[in-house]
Design a binder for these strands. Structure first.
Length: 559
RNA sequence: GGCGAUGUAGCUCAGCAGGUUAGAGCGAGCGCUUCAUAAGCGCUAGGUCACAAGUUCGAGUCUUGUCAUCGCCA
């Protein structure tokens, strides 16, 4: 029976281009998951977009002296383009500066208010008299009272890492013009998170299949007791607030960005011409929803967003929040500001997509931080993709086309060793499916590659290049079987390296497309014709490792 | 400071309802093979399972403490 699967991917701040650290733990696993489920015959909606209203975007605009929307749209376009080129098959990749998002976010706010979960609260905030506006915490800096670091922000000190309040800062000043702000009272809307405490605890305790850090961190967070939280702030970049007296304030971005999952599903339904389709994913109690995140985002998706959904009423809570750890680069965290990054647009200019998708999936930070290295990338490409998978496909097709006149051999009755290889295909389909279902992506990838090894061992044992000369019947069985292994590889690898699988599809002379052949071994038709084989992957020159290292260093000194 | 996760062969990771000589892939060494992008297949080497104490007949596997890394909260 077909299931409804909503795949939600974290919304990136658009204050820089995407780098590999951004996509490794979120877009890559989400796309694997979504592609698998589509193949398995389930109804999938994969949505995300750019978080346009993040403070970093507004800050960058200040730095460059332009409007926040200039920054936001500039990088949204880059992200959008990269998502597409990477083959991340979103049903909709949108952004939060849209009419529908504004409407949905405001509706959520109004509904929470109607249900009694919102109240007003007054607090003291820094106010710039020169600019006649409040300064939110990231717009002020000063000396950290704890460590004396000059340049601590209103929310945190970069010197000692301590969390701060603007009123803690010594010699507080505006980062916009350096003037000294005064503290004035300002009124904000608060959400009663405390009202959801018990309901959330009960819900999380049922989630035994969540990853340990997600579940335990959430329980720990709840254990400390939920504090009500401001959902508006004094800033002019963001979604307007549908209440009297709030025209100079905006919805706090944490509150509004998570609503993007919901508004984007609605937007997708409208754009696809079936306005009510979003209900299949948000109202149907059997629908499943999976949220792919970085580890820094866990409480937002396991506590705050579910609380909002509970308060709104009638909408599905997350089935799982699949949070990954971080990807590092040569042992150090990716950093946009230090320019320590492999930027995606830059990568795409010089290399192919699938080797990156493959390598990132193979080192996916599922249980701990992992490390991208160009040595590792080279090894994954040359020693595994080319040598194991590419070579198996290519050697099989080469022997077959040369000796059987570009036709699929007619196998006749199979021998036991042939049958056991076909059984291994079925087993691999089951194993990979099960691993992806349970969100073990590295294991799934390993299991898929294991089938290519089975194929290589099988060819070595059967030696079709030899039997084809003396026992043509036997060679026909071997090669037909091996072609069916390729057909299976095409399917089980499709979630990971779709472009290469489409090539395999063509090399087998198949009509239609891998994407519509289902999660099954499509039997290769005896007697059908085969095109001339071409290698699936390019072997890379080991020199790229040194070149890329130099490139990284050069880009740092440019900085 | 509190909480959470992680720490197993050179690298990336399995193993963890406690139980014979701790596993895989890549890398390394040796051998076989030649259909294949000098690819494949087989064999071998290599680990005080972060450290310390404890529970147990027996502990990477449970308990406690320490250290390190990352994240969250204060």
């Amino acid at each position: 029976m077909s299931r409804n699967i909503l795949v939600c991917v974290a919304w990136p701040y658009v204050n820089s281009e995407p780098h590999l650290g951004h996509i490794a733990g979120m877009n890559v696993p989400a796309d694997i998951f979504a592609r698998y489920h589509r193949l398995a015959g389930n109804r999938v909606a994969m949505v995300s977009g750019s978080d346009m209203h993040g403070t970093p975007t507004a800050l960058r605009a200040v730095d460059e002296g332009v409007k926040p929307e200039d920054i936001a749209f500039r990088y949204h376009d880059v992200w959008s383009d990269c998502m597409q080129r990477m083959g991340f098959a979103y049903d909709l990749y949108t952004h939060t500066h849209t009419k529908i998002h504004e409407e949905v976010a405001q509706d959520v706010m109004l509904t929470l208010d109607k249900h009694g979960f919102i109240y007003e609260d007054t607090q003291l905030m820094p106010y710039s008299e020169t600019e006649d506006r409040f300064l939110s915490d990231r717009f002020v800096e000063g000396i950290c009272p704890a460590c004396g670091f000059d340049g601590a922000r209103g929310d945190q000190c970069d010197g000692c890492g301590r969390t701060l309040d603007p009123s803690d800062l010594i010699n507080i000043r505006s980062i916009r013009d350096g003037s000294t702000p005064v503290f004035r009272e300002t009124t904000h809307l608060m959400i009663k998170l405390s009202a959801f405490q018990e309901q959330l605890e009960k819900w999380v305790r049922t989630k035994n299949d969540w990853r340990p850090n997600v579940r335990n961190q959430t329980l720990g967070f709840l254990n400390e007791g939920l504090h009500d939280r401001a959902m508006t702030r004094d800033i002019e970049w963001g979604v307007p607030i549908p209440f009297e007296g709030y025209d100079k304030k905006r919805i706090y971005v944490w509150f509004e960005a998570v609503i993007g999952y919901f508004s984007a599903t609605k937007a997708w339904a409208i754009e696809s011409g079936r306005e009510d389709d979003w209900k299949e994913f948000w109202h149907d109690p059997d629908a499943e929803s999976y949220y792919f995140q970085g580890k820094d985002n866990i409480p937002f998706h396991t506590v705050l967003w579910p609380a909002m959904l509970m308060g709104y009423g009638g909408l599905n809570l997350p089935t799982d929040v699949v949070a990954n750890e971080y990807l590092n680069l040569d042992g150090q965290g990716f950093s946009s500001s230090r320019n320590w990054a492999v930027w995606l647009p830059d990568y795409l200019e010089r290399y192919d997509v699938d080797p990156l998708r493959y390598y990132l999936a193979s080192i996916m930070p599922e249980s701990s931080d992992s490390d991208f290295t160009w040595e590792g990338y080279l090894a994954a490409n040359n020693n595994v993709l080319v040598a194991t998978l590419g070579n198996f496909v290519h050697r099989t097709l080469t022997i077959t086309t040369r000796n059987f006149d570009h036709k699929v051999p007619v196998p006749g009755e199979l021998a036991p060793q042939d049958q056991s290889v076909l059984d291994a295909c079925e087993q691999t389909l089951d194993d990979v499916a099960n691993s992806i279902e349970t969100r073990h992506f590295r294991r799934a990838l390993y299991e898929a590659m294991e089938l290519a090894r089975v194929g290589n061992r099988y060819l070595d044992a059967e030696e079709p290049w030899r039997t084809v000369k003396s026992e043509s019947d036997k060679a026909a069985k071997t090669l037909w079987t091996a072609l069916n292994v390729i057909s299976t590889l095409r399917t089980v690898f499709y979630p990971f390296i779709p472009f290469s699988c489409d090539k395999m599809h063509d090399l087998l002379g198949f009509d239609g497309a891998t994407a519509t052949d289902g999660w099954q071994k499509r039997v290769v038709e005896p007697g059908s014709s085969l095109p001339s084989p071409k290698p699936l992957f390019r072997k890379l020159d080991p020199e790229i490792v040194e070149q890329e290292h130099e490139r990284l260093l050069a880009q740092q000194s440019d900085n």
